[in-house]
Design a protein around this nucleic acid. Structure first.
Lengths: 163, 163
DNA sequence: GTGACTGCAAAGTCTTTGCACGCGG
DNA sequence: CCGCGTGCAAAGACTTTGCAGTCAC
């Protein structure tokens, strides 16, 4: 039987927005309409996104002058600090993904369609620990990106070639 | 016996400069003093570096107006295209490392001293292949960064704490 | 000699910051 | 009503590009 690399779920006590509200309160910060809007959009579906994509989606929902680019960056930083999001860098630009309520995972990155496919491997985590032990290295986290061509793009390519 | 995660060597037919000269000739390009200088500096020792560090080192060797920042970027791109260097992105800035004559490897990244420690794991490579097969994903390459605190920095920290 | 290469200056891309007004708690 | 948060404009960090003179071949 092939191993299962798909992702399970993680128990979560609070919805993201409430968790964020809690975090903000603890810091004497405020839950503004802008912050609320961003959290709702971000957690409305599971996806990876950059600041531009997020801003674009949000500006379909509201008037432009209710949400600016700096606020998007500022709020994404806060959500990351709060542990709701995880930030990574792809081709030199920031990309965020869900962290809160989402299990540890790594990524296959399709260089054709740019899609990120998530997978989980306990064996990989174990291996990281093993290597780290060898170097007396205290692991905080790890990031693995496998670059290549995804199944869908491979199919399209072979069709175009007529093979 | 603990496994060996250190790096071996790779057979190389030509010194880096000659290999680059070959590459340039094949493209109708020229081996200028600037390109020669950069290759010599880059391959004078094994290290990771960004454009600034490289330029700084080079400007100790020559007058400033003999080597500009754009030329550094342009040459690094050519060396990468030629397969002599590999480029990665760390905290949003470009970092290059030797590729030609150097085996595949992954990195431990110390978040205190910023050092990159290289390690090699066949098991990791095997695991990547296994996951990719599961997703019918055609692997081009992979990048793994383990973030944490290296042995040296851990020692310093415990000394400062008096433990 | 000629077209590739260079330095310079300027532009580009993505992200962050200074500031004065506005509003959440 | 205090001071955090916002949008705006501008600055910043890093990298790339246009151009005219220069040089490798």
């Amino acid at each position: 039987m092939p191993k299962d690399y798909s992702l399970g779920a993680v128990e979560v006590k609070l919805p993201p927005l409430e968790r964020f509200a809690q975090f903000l309160r603890g810091k004497g910060k405020r839950l503004t309409p802008q912050r609320r809007l961003i959290v709702e959009q971000v957690f409305s579906h599971h996806d990876h996104f950059d600041a531009d994509e997020l801003l674009e989606h949000l500006q379909k929902r509201i008037a432009r002058r209710q949400l600016s680019r700096p606020t998007v960056y500022r709020t994404l930083a806060e959500l990351t600090e709060a542990g709701l999001l995880r930030k990574m860098t792809l081709d030199g630009r920031g990309v965020w993904e869900h962290d809160y309520g989402y299990p540890r995972h790594d990524h296959l990155h399709c260089q054709v369609c740019n899609r990120l496919i998530e997978f989980q491997s306990d064996e990989l985590d174990r291996l990281v620990g093993e290597v780290a032990r060898e170097y007396a290295f205290a692991v905080t986290s790890h990031r693995m990106f496998v670059t290549g061509i995804c199944a869908a793009c491979r199919r399209q390519r072979s069709q175009r070639r007529g093979t």
